[in-house]
Write a protein that binds this DNA or RNA. Structure first.
Lengths: 192, 192
DNA sequence: CCGCATCCTCATGGATACTG
DNA sequence: CAGTATCCATGAGGATGCGG
């Protein structure tokens, strides 16, 4: 049970000591979208061994990155600090997403996180993503799952605007989602 | 030799597929300070197995993140894109650096990277860090090692300014370096 | 000496079965 | 549902060897 550490007095090494293990940041990703119970986290991490998930959750809790609340596991304020880390990784990882292989898993929420990482945070308005699996939305950097308040508010004509904004930083427009995913933007602000 | 992948069509998972293995981001950290030969990289990664370093370097090269140049291994432009990722991790990892344990390794360059991550990039002027091991400097986000052009240019009185700036984002002022480390700032701009 | 490759041992991860 | 227990596969750590 002794923790594996790099033994370096360096911020990067310290960060990796605590969230550098396999699956750990993917668990954080799941919790960035709100509190989640064990089984739901597991559903978002196809292939993880159940004991590993239990181990990781214990370690994250011991480190003060997550806690157990009424709605399941949730990020602490300190753990929320990882959002910027995740967003930078998502941005950089976009390079490997020009094509989707058939065997690769896809969840609309992951796409939402990518959009949240790419769309300028201050941009007002809401972005909705609809797939066969459900609806996710982003509102000023917050990712919400399964809530489509006003389906009629979607403005098809502005889809390109969203993709265009994102494409300014990464070729998100060439993302190969599923074909049945519809990205729609409602009331996007005009600012930079 | 088959690559271990999460099998997820997600930017974060993709990023971790390529730089999520143990030691990989620490290798990138070493190369963020300029081209480095094998033995020098190894010297910056106490405890790494030699075959592991060779493996990682091969993978990074195959992924187009590093290349071999005349001066050793160096980051490609794509690999340089990891700088922001590293900086975010360094910022977050600063939380674990309030105290230095005696057995923890310390290199001035790591401290320089932390400062580069914390000091606003646009700030003009140069920051120098002197320890018993040598001198590192940061100039507009670039980390340079072992060059002290003008030792007399150091203004002791501005040390607090540097630490103050950094402390605005993280408690860098409480960093526990070695006691013999001197942080000095020359000609720091005034703007935010 | 530098830049690895090989070999061996042991810790970690993965898959599946099982339990309070 | 939320894990634990178990067993096997894989990867990391450490010593040593070896060719350029």
């Amino acid at each position: 049970m002794t923790r594996k550490t790099y033994g370096q007095y360096c911020g990067l090494a310290k960060a990796l000591d605590h969230v550098g293990d396999r699956w750990t940041l993917l668990i954080v990703r799941e919790l960035l979208m709100g509190p989640r119970r064990y089984s739901r986290i597991r559903a978002g991490l196809p292939g993880i061994a159940t004991n590993l998930l239990a181990d990781r959750l214990r370690e994250l809790e011991a480190d003060g990155i997550i806690r157990q609340g009424d709605a399941g596991y949730e990020l602490t304020e300190f753990g929320r600090g990882l959002e910027k880390v995740v967003h930078e990784l998502v941005r950089w990882g976009g390079h490997w997403m020009r094509h989707r292989e058939p065997e690769e898993e896809f969840r609309p929420e992951w796409f939402a996180i990518a959009l949240a990482a790419l769309v300028p945070r201050r941009r007002a308005g809401k972005v909705e993503i609809r797939t066969g699996d459900g609806v996710v939305s982003i509102d000023r950097g917050r990712v919400l799952v399964g809530s489509s308040d006003d389906p009629d508010a979607i403005v098809e004509g502005e889809t390109q605007l969203v993709l265009g904004v994102a494409a300014g930083e990464l070729p998100l427009a060439s993302l190969d989602v599923t074909g049945d995913a519809t990205v729609a933007a409602g009331a996007l602000g005009a600012g930079p």
